[in-house]
């Protein structure tokens, strides 16, 4: 077995254990944490397309999750849509929004791109906050009912968690396929050598724009899961803090790795849960963690662990051969 496949085996085993853990613990409290982690993980994976694979640091990604959730909330509450048809519309809206915002943000690169995404993200926050006739303003929109699925009532935490596992697996598989696809390779090439990629025939701007839309789409999916779970949406969900939180998940876990955002999402969600139980200073901790991670662990947990495993594994393999 090669080291790479060993690492894959270890990762898959850990992933299955992690997914099973809330069910083994049994209590709804843990199962609900599991659902929140998975929603955050899908959200973080979507941002990872931009930050990790595209080298485009966006600080406005919460706008897509939030807009998607708002659309579902508005359509189900005020226009009699079913949850699922509202979700379809939400995805369409988010894709169109990502196409427009992407076209604007990609007028800039690097830090300018970052600044524009931040500004655009705050626009959506501003709309949600100020357009209170429709969005409920600072009160948010409460009481969105969790839907049934195949006759099963998803209010039951275990069932909802099972659906989240399925959704997460689809997202993870989709991500794996994407990063190994022609477009995915092209995107990673434009991250490392945009000029060369252009000369090789890759349309750098278009590749980035499509990636922006795909990232928006998956953030929209996360938004649907989010509103399904919480049944409530508030302007804060579109805000800067939420965008920073998901960026922290990606960077802490390891940008540009498949499982990094998943690990990052787990760390951030659990940390937030634990901290909030004792003090109300989550934002302070978020800020300090951000600074600490960027300075002390800039490449994230997953690449760090990977290197650690690689340094341990050759020895293990030699032992195995000596033993056999």
């Amino acid at each position: 077995m090669t080291n790479t496949s060993r690492i894959t085996t270890i990762s898959v085993t850990l992933l299955i254990l992690a997914l099973a853990a809330p069910l083994l613990l049994g209590q709804p409290f843990y199962i609900n944490i599991g659902s929140q982690v998975l929603i955050a993980a899908i959200f973080a994976m979507s941002l990872n397309i931009l930050v990790g694979y595209g080298g485009m640091t966006s600080i406005g990604h919460a706008a897509y999750l939030g807009t998607s959730a708002y659309v579902v909330a508005l359509l189900t509450l005020q226009h009699g849509f079913s949850f699922y048809s509202a979700s379809a519309v939400a995805l369409l809206v988010v894709v169109i929004m990502a196409a427009i915002f992407g076209a604007i943000a990609l007028r800039g690169t690097g830090i300018t791109f970052l600044m524009i995404t931040l500004a655009l993200g705050q626009t959506m926050w501003g709309v949600a906050f100020r357009w209170s006739d429709v969005t409920g303003g600072d009160n948010g929109l409460p009481d969105i009912k969790r839907p049934d699925l195949f006759g099963l009532n998803l209010v039951e935490p275990g069932l909802f968690y099972a659906v989240m596992i399925a959704l997460f697996m689809v997202a993870l598989a989709g991500m794996w396929i994407f990063i190994h696809s022609g477009l995915g390779l092209s995107l990673q090439g434009t991250r490392d050598q945009p000029r060369r990629m252009g000369m090789l025939g890759h349309h750098v701007w278009l590749v980035r724009w499509i990636a922006f839309i795909i990232a928006g789409f998956w953030a929209g999916v996360a938004g649907i899961a989010f509103i399904g779970y919480h049944g409530y949406i508030h302007p804060l969900s579109l805000g800067l803090a939420n965008s920073a939180e998901v960026l922290l998940m990606v960077i802490a876990g390891g940008a540009g790795t498949l499982l990094g955002p998943v690990v990052g999402a787990t760390i951030v969600v659990v940390l937030k849960m634990v901290v909030s139980a004792y003090v109300s200073r989550w934002v302070l901790l978020l800020g300090c963690t951000f600074v600490a991670i960027v300075i002390l662990l800039p490449e994230g947990v997953v690449p760090g662990l990977e290197r650690l495993l690689k340094s341990i594994l050759p020895a293990a393999r030699d032992d195995g051969e000596a033993g056999s």
């Binding site: 396929i177 994407f178 477009l183 390779l185 025939g201």
Partner: peptide, 13 residues
């Protein structure tokens, strides 16, 4: 890949 249409495919490995 730069001269292949597959550069636009989000699914083909």
């Amino acid at each position: 890949l730069g001269i292949s249409p597959l550069r636009w495919s989000p699914i083909s490995r």
